[in-house]
Amino acid sequence: MHYDLVDLRVFLAIAEEGSLSRGAARAHLAASSASLRLKGLEEALGVSLFVRRARGVALTAAGNVMLEHVRQCVAGLEQMHADLSPYALGLTTHLTFFANNNVVNFHLPDDLARFFAHHPSVRITLEERLGTDIILAVAQGRADIGVVAVDSDHPELDFLPYREDRFVLIVPPGSRLSRQASVRFADCFDQPWICLQNGSALHTYLMNQAASLGGRLDVRVQVASFDAVMGLVASGAGVSIVPASALEKQEVGRMVAVELTDAWAPRHHRVCIRKGAIAGNRQLGHLVATLCAPRMQAARAPMLPGLATGPHAG
């Protein structure tokens, strides 16, 4: 079945405005034209999308299903235009970057700011993913570069040191766990938990770790940010696990960080790229240099062929 993009945009406008006339005006069409397009769309689909009322229109059950799909389609088109616009302006480098949420939230902001200061024409799509997904995406070419904290390697990828971090348990002051210097993850299953929202990489990771130990977390609250997690823990609502890099100086005293003794608590973040990718992508080389060169030089590790060592190198 073929859909006219104008028809879909007219449907979206009418649905969000709750009015045929207002939706038509938003779509820069006469109400009669919008009505004809809507009628044609309903006939093509074989369903009614709206119920006409005295003061506007309301979506039918089928219309609500249609609305969600149309929103996704329109958002995808807008993103496509956004991704293509740099090319129209003569900015021809676009990189896809996958990383875990620890890196996205606490390490990359400063590093990317330094990168863009010297390479303003580059555009980056940054997405949060699980480590195993990142490795597969980079190996398959769906991402140009990734940052992972998993130990497993891949024969088609190069791995370079990036950042060291670790997971810590944060608990309210005065609680039972706050008096312990260290703790195992399994010993905390009886606590109420504050977690990031379902679907986030860290939430999925912790749920899987708990399941592998034969336990489950009693999640009391799910929130969208680490700031919200720490605020709820400080208030006494529960405990949580966050990267040590998430703890700012102002949080000291509001909560207690307890060391986790589990083998997965240390986070050895590494950049991964396809073997030979730097030789064919100059800007990717600059990005890898920005992320890794200072740490590789400090460790006196051998650098990859073609890896620039300065902001203007190459």
Rank of each mutant, 00 (worst) to 15 (best):
L95Q: 02
G63R: 06
H154D: 03
L45V: 11
Q79G: 12
L169I: 05
H107N: 07
R295Y: 07
S32P: 02
S245Y: 08
V233Q: 10
R129L: 01
F159I: 05
L49K: 10
P86V: 07
L213R: 10
R71Y: 01
E127W: 00
C73N: 02
A308K: 03
D151E: 14
M255N: 03
A27Y: 06
V183K: 12
G280R: 09
V10I: 09
G63W: 00
L36S: 08
L77W: 15
I278Y: 03
P109M: 04
A58D: 13
G63E: 03
A263R: 15
A186M: 08
Q209A: 11
V271I: 05
T290E: 06
H2P: 10
N105V: 04
P109I: 07
H94E: 12
A234W: 04
H2T: 08
G276W: 10
L8S: 03
L157G: 05
G214A: 14
L206V: 04
E43R: 15
A62K: 09
A88W: 10
V256M: 08
A293K: 06
E259T: 15
C292Q: 10
A15E: 05
L41F: 05
P305F: 09
V256D: 00
T204D: 03
G46I: 09
V51D: 13
P155A: 13
V171Y: 01
A224C: 12
L169D: 01
R142E: 04
G63P: 04
L91C: 13
S178P: 07
R22M: 03
R26E: 13
Y162V: 00
A246T: 02
T125S: 07
A301Q: 15
C188W: 01
N64R: 15
N64K: 14
F116K: 07
V229R: 02
S175R: 13
H119C: 09
R274F: 07
R274H: 10
D111W: 02
Q283M: 06
A298C: 03
M296F: 12
I14P: 02
H28R: 15
T96A: 11
K249G: 15
S19F: 00
A228M: 13
D83P: 03
Q191N: 14
T125P: 00
G306D: 06
T309S: 12
A244Q: 15
R37S: 09
R114N: 09
A30Y: 06
G56N: 05
A289L: 05
V70M: 07
T309Q: 15
A211V: 13
P243D: 02
S240E: 04
A149T: 09
R9L: 08
A211R: 15
A308I: 05
N198V: 07
L260M: 12
